[in-house]
Nucleic acid binder design. Sequence first.
DNA 1: AGAAAAAGAATGAACGTTCATTTTTACATA
DNA 2: TATGTAAAAATGAACGTTCATTCTTTTTCT
Lengths: 194, 194
Amino acid sequence: MAKLQKSIDKRNALVKATIELVNNNGFHATPMSKIAKMANVSPATIYLYFENKQDLVNQTYIDVKAEYTKYAFATYDPKMSVEAGFELIWKRIADFKLKECENAMFLAQCDNTPMIDDQSRQQGIMHLQPLLDLWARGKKEGIIKPMSDYLLYAYSINPLSFLMIIQKRGDFQLDERHLEEAYQSAWSSIKVCQ
Amino acid sequence: MAKLQKSIDKRNALVKATIELVNNNGFHATPMSKIAKMANVSPATIYLYFENKQDLVNQTYIDVKAEYTKYAFATYDPKMSVEAGFELIWKRIADFKLKECENAMFLAQCDNTPMIDDQSRQQGIMHLQPLLDLWARGKKEGIIKPMSDYLLYAYSINPLSFLMIIQKRGDFQLDERHLEEAYQSAWSSIKVCQ
DNA sequence: AGAAAAAGAATGAACGTTCATTTTTACATA
DNA sequence: TATGTAAAAATGAACGTTCATTCTTTTTCT
């Protein structure tokens, strides 16, 4: 009697192939057959791991989002000061977006198109809680502007997505100095001005 | 002898239908047949106005981008002070992104996916020159941080795209107060701090 | 040997595009 | 102003292809 033993490697290869092909060609131009070929697998095999194409891309999104937030908070400790904590998280996010370009590109594409189910999108949002907690503390201490978290995110975190995209496209290359400037701008836009 | 008289209305209807369908379903799920139906036109007619589907979406992108920048600079006068000029342009852009939501959504989708040809994308960038000129002047006067224009754009303009998207999704509703806060954050992030 | 996993070929639907034809238009002639 | 006509514009049906998915068979594993 055989055991249920679907290979996690095969699943990961499929997820990876999905990211790469969707990044380069867009969702509309990445057929299941190509994904299968890139993952060295028969098209039929995909359906042992995923219900259908939509499920494959939803699961890929959730996987990448989880990796993103795990990376972002890996070295964060809630006992840090607000300013130190924010700088740490911001720089981890910047690292991820600029170095794990493939993953970040994929997220940007998902977050700006209807290619992902609403439900999967919802699932991806939750993981940001530690940052929201930090901001709540910062507002209480009078260090962070008393604004909606959406505005704080829009001004301090989201610009990194834009920089990642133009960097990937080759229009612009971010060096260490740019990154420090970017951090200062992010912090300027959310800290209470004295 | 008949005159070449393809109806501009029909072309516009096709462009409008493309925007609406791509916004709601994504590029991969908007067939030519649906675009034709929404524009009250036969599928074959599309090919009198556009070479193919790619050409249709490229032209739609360029149209919308032109409308966007035209709106942004409509009331701007290069003789204004840097701060006044920036506030004016910023608020026009905010207006466009938040009120002409359909158009702005479409641009966001195009700018974050490979659905547009590089060449069409290039064509869309040029129109931003007046803002770049304003920033150049601001840097010379020591009012604007001496940073790359890409960074200035990422921090002062791009956040509006994010706010537009979450507003469209119903997660968040921007009122006048938020908008003023958003402007202050934008200005904070690019002005030289004294 | 037996059961799960994987494969390749097959299927039917959907798509972008084209074709053959009809309808509309502009205008020359009466 | 009315009519004929030729070319452009528009159409619905059809074409060939591609795609997601399934079916049947083969391979792998215990």
